[in-house]
Design a protein around this nucleic acid. Structure first.
Lengths: 209, 209
DNA sequence: GCTTTTGCACTGACCAGTCAGTACAAAAAT
DNA sequence: ATTTTTGTACTGACTGGTCAGTGCAAAAGC
């Protein structure tokens, strides 16, 4: 009898197989895209028979959806943790945003393939997993929006800022800068990239620095 | 006899057919991705026989590559024009960046499908058109980098800014904010979005506005 | 009279998903 | 203690369908 994959208490063996499939799928789909990646390829890369994929997931898209949920879950947790840590340590909201930028960079550094795949699929329409993706995106962006709103309430940010738009722009700034970093100048250090984005965030681009 | 599609002097009729194919392909591929879009669909949407696609383009990927070149060409020209106009009118480099942000938004407003597709394909590896895409990306980013460098030389920007990274971050900021605008709050006006991004560029997020 | 487009039948590779069967360990029956 | 049954995880050959690309004769433009 098949067990729903989100059910906890699946055997350790099964969980290990799923993990291998996630890892195989994420790199292949990041490189080639969802449709260009075949289930045979995923199975082969995971060192598993094709049937095993279907024993563990109802379909190719279900495998992909669970991958998305899993990945964005990690990111959201990491952002939230960064914001809370800053708050606990008595930092300002700008400090919190800065800490979240770093958390984002650390995440992308660790899971570049996932990030690539996420960006590539996010704005597509007419796809099976569209609704999953929207929900999951909103969870991540909401963390940033939360910090912005608190900053406005506390008088630290201008009341005129557009919270959702600014949050999206900040996320985009980090996402694109980090993907460019990984793709085109991977030798740069995380600190370097973080410093450049920090500067931009704090409006220290113009002026004599 | 087939004529290379970049050759000028193709008949007006042929050019019109190509244009129809571009338009059909761009929306379909933006929605579904390259691999999930069939040549039959493209032909049908363009109101043209399948054979005509192959009379005009050597293959599906060639059609797509020429689409990319064409689209990014438009964007690059538009960015360059914005920068030059600002310079002519005696604006600062910040003004130039701001004008380029607006030019980017206008472009995305006009060609949302193209932008979507471009973002989705940009960071993929192992694809046939990868090299085309890199060249074409560099052309666009180079315009932003140019303005940043001139700003540093003129003492308007800090010497410590990292030009390529900052350029990438700026492009990302506009790209992602604009795609979110189109996808999730399309009722907003271009001026609204531009104002939010302007504010971020000029570091007027913190402070009482 | 060329170039371009049409309509349509066809091919061959490729691929998502299926299914009958294997392996094996733990529980139940004897 | 040993045989038998049950449940779980996995296997890989197979199927039915899809799709890029071809071939060609006839029609339409220029």
């Amino acid at each position: 009898m098949e067990r729903s994959s989100t059910t906890p208490g699946g055997s350790a063996r099964r969980e290990a197989t799923r993990q291998k499939l996630y890892e195989a799928a994420v790199t292949l789909i990041a490189e080639q895209g969802f449709s260009a990646t075949t289930v045979d390829e995923i199975a082969e890369r995971a060192g598993v028979a094709k049937g095993t994929v279907y024993y563990n997931f109802a379909s190719k898209s279900v495998l992909f959806e669970e991958l998305l949920r899993h990945g964005v879950g990690l990111l959201t947790a990491s952002l939230r943790e960064a914001a809370e840590r800053t708050a606990r340590e008595g930092g300002t909201k700008v400090d919190a945003l800065d800490a979240m930028i770093r958390a984002g960079l650390v995440f992308i550094d660790r899971y570049p393939a996932f990030t690539q795949l996420y960006v590539a699929e996010l704005w597509r329409t007419n796809r099976a997993w569209q609704s999953t993706l929207m929900v999951v995106r909103q969870q991540a962006v909401a963390v940033v929006e939360g910090v912005l709103r608190e900053g406005v309430a506390a008088g630290e940010f201008s009341e005129e800022i557009d919270v959702p738009l600014t949050a999206a722009a900040l996320v985009g700034m980090v996402l694109v800068a980090a993907l460019d970093w990984k793709s085109f100048q991977p030798e740069r250090s995380l600190d370097d990239v973080h410093a450049a984005l920090s500067r931009l965030l704090q409006g220290r681009v113009s002026g004599r620095g």
